[in-house]
């Protein structure tokens, strides 16, 4: 894979991410905002793939674009009032917020340009999911099984709290 293609992919993903993030804030219908948030999550997953972190990309799509979006959409659908097409109203502080966001950007850009980035001895080029799988089912067996107990507790807790009777 040669560099220009990766550069093109990066800038396309960055454009999609920025446009969808802007749409989240600026669209009037909050359901549309949520859907564009899902698109933003997916494009972040694209960045992870460009960085050779394919497991992280899969988790990003499964958890953020899947689970978090489902919870968000359900929360919207379960609480919405009559006037959904005008539910994501802006307020008078948009200009102030823009100034604060620009200030944060300037600080971040300054810090990022001043930092000397320490890189590892070798770049990650191997598909790392298999390595992760082997580690998870060999050395980290106990945390893995405890995770299932944690999920069980979360599920039972959710049912106990959310069930109506």
């Amino acid at each position: 894979m040669n560099d220009p293609i990766i550069a093109i992919a990066f800038f396309v993903l960055a454009a999609v991410l920025l446009i969808s993030a802007l749409a989240v804030v600026m669209l009037r219908n909050i359901v549309h905002s949520a859907l564009f948030l899902a698109l933003a999550f997916v494009s972040v997953a694209g960045f992870y793939i460009l960085l050779n972190a394919e497991f992280l990309a899969a988790v990003q799509i499964l958890i953020y674009a899947g689970a978090v979006m489902i919870l968000l959409l359900f929360a919207i659908m379960l609480t919405q009032r009559a006037n959904t097409p005008m539910s994501n109203v802006s307020n008078s502080q948009a200009g102030l917020a823009a100034i604060v966001a620009a200030a944060v950007f300037v600080v971040l850009a300054f810090v990022l340009s001043k930092t000397s980035w320490l890189t590892g001895a070798a770049a990650v080029t191997q598909p790392n999911t298999e390595v992760l799988g082997k580690a998870l089912f060999d050395y980290y067996v106990l945390p893995f099984e405890i995770a299932s107990v944690l999920l069980l507790v979360a599920m039972i807790g959710a049912i106990v709290i959310a069930r109506e009777d």
Partner: peptide, 25 residues
């Protein structure tokens, strides 16, 4: 009441995260 379906889905979605490296390796 539909929120329960979302919660159960989220639990099994997290389970999929563990199934994925298992299936690859």
């Amino acid at each position: 009441g539909f929120y329960l379906y979302a919660l159960v889905f989220v639990i099994f979605d997290v389970e999929t995260v563990f199934l994925y490296p298992w299936a690859v390796a």
